[in-house]
């Protein structure tokens, strides 16, 4: 039985359904068949796995996070980092654009004088309260200096206290960008 292209439209308009479709019984049975087929296939493959066979075939499609992860897309918004100048100091000039745009109001910057008058301004402190951040990425978009990015691919920064969720300038500067490879590929985490 081929799937009708306009199945969704048909569901919205019961008049367009055939008699058997309107009884739902064949459709339910069709769904059960699909699920059951996967169940027995996976069961079989897992049994073979136990016996040390068929290791190249996945038992189930579920990604076994955190033992396994998939390769993240480069557009994924992950933990922030502050980018650095050649001398290792932050690129950030404490313009407060990110603090202003942040819808969660979770960026706290204190500005101070930069010794070089051609740079003029730098952050004395730069805190992001990740407990409040909604990972919208506005801060990255708005930054005129490319000083803040969300390309670390770090997602597991949970902490035991609210205070530990506040990342200060040193922690943010120490984050490194993650090279993107194998988008969508499932990898075992060692």
């Amino acid at each position: 039985m081929s799937r009708p292209k306009d199945a969704m439209n048909r569901l919205r308009d019961p008049e367009a359904l055939s008699f058997w479709q309107r009884t739902y019984v064949p459709e339910i049975l069709r769904g059960l068949k699909l699920t059951a087929a996967h169940f027995f296939r996976n069961l079989l493959i897992h049994i073979f796995h136990l016996a040390g066979l068929w290791k190249d075939r996945r038992g189930a499609e579920t990604v076994q996070y955190p033992e396994e992860v998939r390769g993240y897309s480069p557009r994924l918004r992950s933990l922030h980092r502050l980018t650095k100048r050649d001398d290792g100091s932050p690129r950030c000039v404490a313009c407060m654009m990110c603090e202003t745009i942040c819808p969660a109001r979770c960026i706290y910057i204190v500005a101070t004088e930069h010794p070089d008058p051609n740079i003029e301004k730098r952050p004395a402190s730069f805190d992001i309260d990740l407990g409040k951040c909604v990972f919208c990425g506005f801060c990255v978009e708005v930054c005129p200096e490319d000083a803040i990015r969300m390309d670390t691919h770090i997602l597991n920064f949970a902490a035991y206290s609210r205070q530990e969720m506040v990342w200060d300038i040193n922690r943010l500067l120490s984050n490194e960008p993650q090279r993107v490879e194998g988008i969508g590929e499932i990898r075992k985490v060692k």
Binding site: A94, C95, M97, K121, P144, E145
Partner: peptide, 10 residues
């Protein structure tokens, strides 16, 4: 603006 530094961020 021809000689303006556009320092607006700082």
């Amino acid at each position: 603006l021809s000689n303006h530094p556009l320092d607006c961020p700082v």
